[in-house]
Write a protein that binds this DNA or RNA. Sequence first.
DNA 1: TCCTACGATGGACGCTGTCCAGGTCAAGAA
DNA 2: TTCTTGACCTGGACAGCGTCCATCGTAGGA
Lengths: 136, 136
Amino acid sequence: MSDLLERLRGRGWRVTSQRRVVAEVLDGDHVHLTADEVHARAAHLLPEISRATVYNTLGEMVSLGEVMEVSTDGRAKRYDPNAHHPHQHLVCSHCGAIRDVHPSGDPLADLPQEQRFGFTVSQVEVTYRGLCPTCA
Amino acid sequence: MSDLLERLRGRGWRVTSQRRVVAEVLDGDHVHLTADEVHARAAHLLPEISRATVYNTLGEMVSLGEVMEVSTDGRAKRYDPNAHHPHQHLVCSHCGAIRDVHPSGDPLADLPQEQRFGFTVSQVEVTYRGLCPTCA
DNA sequence: TCCTACGATGGACGCTGTCCAGGTCAAGAA
DNA sequence: TTCTTGACCTGGACAGCGTCCATCGTAGGA
């Protein structure tokens, strides 16, 4: 986990106890927590941590490219620490479970030039939706 | 436009003046209004219409599959009347402009079986991001 | 014309996220 | 170790988006 902390420290980030617990909470694979969930888990480790700090810290991690922001449901944004490995998301339409997936091929290549309307396209987000084994 | 109204009437929908103006506001191509924008335009045609009614009506149109819900920015959802022609979206990262686009190929086919983790995948949403000609 | 169930209203409420003034502290310097 | 300072944290107010609910209005059938 301190991978993330080490990288951030290397970028001149001041490491505080608040930032450390947020980084700890975000450790792991297939982690897609909302800001509120991050706050709840962080508060378990450091009871006085404020909501504003969690939002600020997450925002900074996103700016630094160390964490991805994902919004799969139009409600709260979710934070995905797996930002260094390009991937897409598979979401259960019923229970909201999320998995990281790696489609074959380059989704960007599927958009023909004449369908780009002069845009300089630089990024593609793909969300696959369906039912997970438990909900099906 | 009353395409939409006719289809809804055919499904036993009671047609009221409120529902009619919401359907009128949503008429056209490349229309991606937020609920609030729909409300503002509807109120121009029918000043007393309430916000709750607009939300209810949009929600019903979505349930009936006549309108698509799109959330491209993590803020307000947008409503796309072009629900009967499968398409994806191209979004300007700077000004938020949205275009309907039609990628070549079937994005669903790009997700190998072993990447589906037992999910029954039924739908794919693709959002292309970049800069529009004006913002570039 | 009358009835009635469905629809509309608007105000309260909840969730998500942002902002700000003031207090606190990490980390470098001596 | 102590000092200094600017970056950081806090808690609360506030704003945007969306939902809920009790009540009133009305479309459409009898």
